[in-house]
Amino acid sequence: MEEGKVFSQSVEQSAAAYAIIHEKFGSAVSAFDANETMPFFEVLDVSLWRDIALFMRDHAKLRFNYMACMTGMDYQAEEKLGIVCNLESLSLFNHRLAVKVKCARDGGFIPSVACVWHTANWHEREAYDMFGMLFTGHPDFRRILCPDDWEGFPLRKDYKVQESYHGIKVPY
């Protein structure tokens, strides 16, 4: 967090929440990005993601009890895939944070947080369905929208539409 900058009240609260996380996990998390729309930080040590999630949910001054959204991402230039989790503290605090977690593009792993927020169960399945990153420790890990025998991951930036599916022509 840069010194001497004036943030809005909501970003200020999120920055305070980040400070608690940073104090506990140190270099495992990146610097705080005071984005006005959604302040965020990145988890640099991916293996600690579930511990960070549990800490964020259970710490008395954080209480991120609500996962509003979880989105998959394809960082093609960085050769990485990732997720973005929008976390909030419903009816307890006004802070909110987005957490970014990245993994390798081919066969990358991210620890599942389905045991922390049940919302993550289906969202992680959707992220896998569309982007193909794997979530370790997920209770029911399989595709959610596409058929089980679908080839490829449709929202990857280099996805090519398959010529046919079960003998039915796909392109127009």
Binding site: C146, P154, V161, I168, K169, V170, P171, Y172
Partner: peptide, 20 residues
């Protein structure tokens, strides 16, 4: 009829039910 608004980028849409 023909895939409608998904005719080009709808990777999962059948482009017209008359194909089946």
């Amino acid at each position: 009829n023909c895939g409608g608004p998904y005719w080009e980028h709808g990777y999962h849409v059948l482009k017209g039910v008359d194909r089946i």
